[in-house]
Amino acid sequence: MIVDSARYQAGARDAEALGVADAARLARRGQGFVWLAVSQPAREELDELGKYFGLPALAVEDALEAHQRSKLKAYGDCLFAVVKTVLYDEATGQLDVSELNVFVGARYALVLSRTAGDVFGGIRRRIDGHPLVTALGPMAALWAVLDTVVDAGERVVDLLIDRAEQIEQAVFQQDHDQSEAIYLHHRQVDRLGRVVHPMLAVFDGLGRGEPVMSPDGVRTVLREAGDHARRLSEEVELLSGRLDGLLSANLARVSVRQNVIMQKVSAWAAIAAVPTIIAGIYGMNFRQFPELGWPFGYPFAIAVMVAAVGALHWNFRRVGWL
Rank of each mutant, 00 (worst) to 15 (best):
2 I>Y: 08
2 I>T: 14
4 D>M: 08
9 Q>E: 04
9 Q>L: 00
10 A>G: 00
13 R>H: 06
13 R>E: 11
13 R>N: 07
15 A>I: 09
15 A>T: 14
16 E>P: 01
19 G>F: 01
26 L>D: 07
26 L>H: 12
28 R>Q: 14
29 R>A: 15
31 Q>Y: 00
39 S>H: 13
41 P>A: 07
44 E>S: 10
44 E>L: 06
45 E>H: 02
47 D>A: 14
50 G>S: 11
50 G>M: 08
52 Y>D: 14
54 G>Q: 09
64 L>G: 12
68 Q>R: 09
74 A>Q: 13
76 G>W: 01
78 C>I: 13
80 F>L: 06
80 F>E: 06
80 F>Y: 15
80 F>I: 09
82 V>S: 05
86 V>G: 13
89 D>K: 04
98 S>F: 09
102 V>G: 03
107 R>E: 10
108 Y>P: 09
108 Y>R: 04
108 Y>F: 15
110 L>W: 01
120 F>H: 15
121 G>F: 04
124 R>N: 07
124 R>F: 00
126 R>I: 08
129 G>L: 03
132 L>T: 14
136 L>E: 14
137 G>T: 02
137 G>M: 00
138 P>A: 12
139 M>I: 06
142 L>E: 11
147 D>Q: 05
149 V>E: 06
150 V>Q: 11
151 D>R: 06
153 G>D: 13
160 L>R: 07
161 I>R: 12
164 A>W: 00
167 I>N: 07
170 A>F: 02
172 F>P: 09
172 F>Q: 11
175 D>R: 13
176 H>G: 10
176 H>Y: 08
176 H>N: 12
177 D>C: 10
178 Q>P: 15
181 A>M: 08
182 I>G: 06
183 Y>R: 15
184 L>Q: 14
185 H>R: 11
185 H>N: 11
185 H>F: 06
187 R>C: 02
188 Q>S: 08
189 V>C: 03
190 D>K: 08
191 R>Y: 02
191 R>C: 03
195 V>A: 09
198 P>M: 03
199 M>Q: 13
200 L>C: 07
201 A>N: 05
201 A>F: 00
202 V>H: 03
206 L>P: 07
208 R>S: 03
209 G>I: 07
212 V>A: 09
215 P>A: 06
221 V>W: 01
228 H>R: 15
230 R>C: 12
231 R>A: 15
239 L>M: 02
248 S>C: 00
251 L>W: 01
251 L>T: 13
253 R>H: 02
256 V>W: 03
257 R>W: 02
257 R>M: 12
259 N>C: 05
259 N>T: 09
262 M>L: 12
262 M>P: 04
262 M>Y: 01
262 M>C: 05
264 K>P: 01
267 A>R: 11
268 W>R: 08
269 A>K: 05
271 I>V: 13
271 I>A: 04
274 V>Q: 04
277 I>F: 01
279 A>R: 04
283 G>I: 04
285 N>T: 06
286 F>R: 10
289 F>H: 09
291 E>T: 10
294 W>V: 07
294 W>I: 05
294 W>K: 10
299 P>T: 14
301 A>M: 04
303 A>E: 01
306 V>L: 13
306 V>N: 06
311 A>V: 15
313 H>C: 01
315 N>W: 05
316 F>V: 14
319 V>H: 11
319 V>D: 11
320 G>N: 05
321 W>D: 08
